[in-house]
Design a binder for these strands. Structure first.
Lengths: 196, 196, 196, 196
DNA sequence: TATGAATGAGGATTCATTCAT
DNA sequence: GATGAATGAATCCTCATTCAT
């Protein structure tokens, strides 16, 4: 049992070693040899813990995502106003402290749409579900206090569209806008779904 | 002069040969040798027309995108109702006839977020600009007839958020929803920005 | 007949175009494509005038060597003192105006000892013969005025050893000494074969 | 520690496999595939021990040069007469037993003047220094017994010129003279620097 | 005579993976 | 469990050369 825990620790350790390299290089420049060196272990050892490279990147992404989530959930908790909570939910990723996370998430998206790895697809589905549920609660709470601009809208549909929009903003933030513009525009967007 | 035209034709021809392979394989399984065979030309010939593999995929993507755009613009033209035009703009990509386009676009997104190729970044920027301008016209026209649910919203911000949402829907259509659900949800989303 | 002359002119023209590239790149970076571009002719045309790349470099080397020879012969002619003539014969190559020549000669030596091209071997043999004869005359003349330190030495042997030494100086000038040191040392060397 | 020794042994082993091929082919015909085959190892293995092809040839040259040096130093030691020692120093390379060495040294010179490899330049510099120091000792000893023909000459300059001459003889031995002529002429040359 | 598009053999190099220690 | 030397398939890309125009 403790062996399993150790195995898990080592997995994390290896995956995190991968982070430094991935921040500097594109994924297909990440080599097992390089990774082994960075993690101070033998090349063969990596295969004791991972099936392949994508697995490692998935593990890294999961770790970073969990870290990111904990961080933002905590912050969102502290905020009392629900509309502001929602804004935080969509914009905290653009804070400087998440620069690395953003870069890795970007590369992970690259893999997601290049490979056909099932674990990755699974991760994406879970990401959606989690965000959906979390945002749904926020929206419901917020709509009790603030009136949504559209009274008739189905909450599920609204939540869904917000998540889609959030994803779109994230993706385009790498190409068409600056970070601060993105944050600003997201806030405007959130305001636009509420009555004045 | 005619040589340049021919050169361009050949570029297209080679890029299109790439399509068949790309539909079946992931990008890093697309080899120059395979492509040369498919295009019935020598490996060296490919390098007369393209700098590298990414260039070819970019050309293919551009070709398909232009074809897609012509197609949908034509259809949107025929539609009289502006809200419907917008719906078409966001949903036509999910029609069966664009199945291949969707698959290639997906792979292209994979490259976009994996590589640091400047031409690809340029393509993304142009994609955004074009869509922004096109959609802006539609929104303006539509808001004259149909009243937007949010009277005060800045049109640019609205257009921007719709494009972001459109992109988000597209990306998640590969993982979380069926094509028909996606289309349905997009229509609901568009309706939600108008008064009843 | 005039066709032959033209053919020769073109050969020279192509070979000279090769110079610019060769000064910047190592020989195996010199490509026919690059050369054709520089010479403003078609790739195929080059094969009308040359058998292969080594042939072109040989032609270039020959051209430069002839130019160099004319130049130094002229200068040596002007000098009256025979010991000084000999010094000029060995040191003029290190003048700034022959920088390019030196670089090309160096690359040519690289080819000489890498390939087994017969024309190149022939060129080397002729180079030796010519220099031998030319230097022999100088030595003879000089020994009539200045007394050689070694009275008994066979002139042929002396000439031979000087040419060998000259070659050695040239080769090591690329690695172990500065140009000015080389020139200085050569002069000392020449002085050493004469009585004070 | 013993790993380092083994690594070095393997390097030598690979480099020596290169010898056989190099004796038959020119350098740019020496392929990694061929070399791997000859050395009975995988192509990839070569890259565990060497950076590139030039590195391998440098290693081979170094090995052969060390072997050659040991050999001649031993022989020179046995000779008592210092003038004869010097003659041996300049002529032993032309003995039949060094036929292979000579051929490889020739090819190495080809690389030296074709490439811009720093390690190779370093090798050349060291070669000069070593020979200079070694020959200087011989000259000094010899000049105590035999009187140099030129009493005033600076020993350093004399040594330098002899090395240059030695190099020149070596280079021209591939083109203008037979081995035996070369040996003969070198001996004459050495005699010429001494009084009768 | 001149061309330059087309070629494809060929080579360097990479790197995930294995397996004996 | 850990290792890292050995591997060789796989791939990109080059470039001399040809030949139809």
């Amino acid at each position: 049992m403790s062996s399993l825990i150790n195995k898990n620790k080592k997995r994390k350790c290896i995956a995190l070693s991968c982070k430094k390299i991935l921040l500097e290089e594109r994924i297909n420049k990440l080599t097992i040899a390089q990774l082994a060196k960075e993690a101070n272990i033998g090349k063969g050892t990596i295969y004791e813990y991972f099936e392949n490279k994508e697995d490692i990147v998935l593990e890294l992404n999961t770790l970073l995502y969990e870290n990111y989530r904990e961080n933002i959930y905590e912050k969102i908790e502290k905020e009392k106003d629900y509309r502001e909570k929602i804004k935080l939910f969509l914009t905290l990723i653009y804070e400087d402290k998440f620069n690395c996370h953003r870069k890795i998430f970007k590369k992970f998206i690259g893999i997601t749409y290049s490979s056909e790895n099932n674990s990755i697809i699974e991760f994406q589905r879970n990401w959606y579900k989690e965000n959906f549920e979390y945002l749904k609660v926020l929206i419901k709470e917020s709509s009790e206090n603030k009136r949504l601009i559209n009274n008739d809208i189905n909450v599920d549909e609204l939540v869904d569209s917000i998540i889609n929009t959030m994803l779109g903003f994230f993706l385009l933030s790498f190409f068409t806008k600056s970070i601060s513009e993105t944050q600003h525009d997201i806030k405007k967007y959130i305001n636009s779904i509420y009555k004045k």
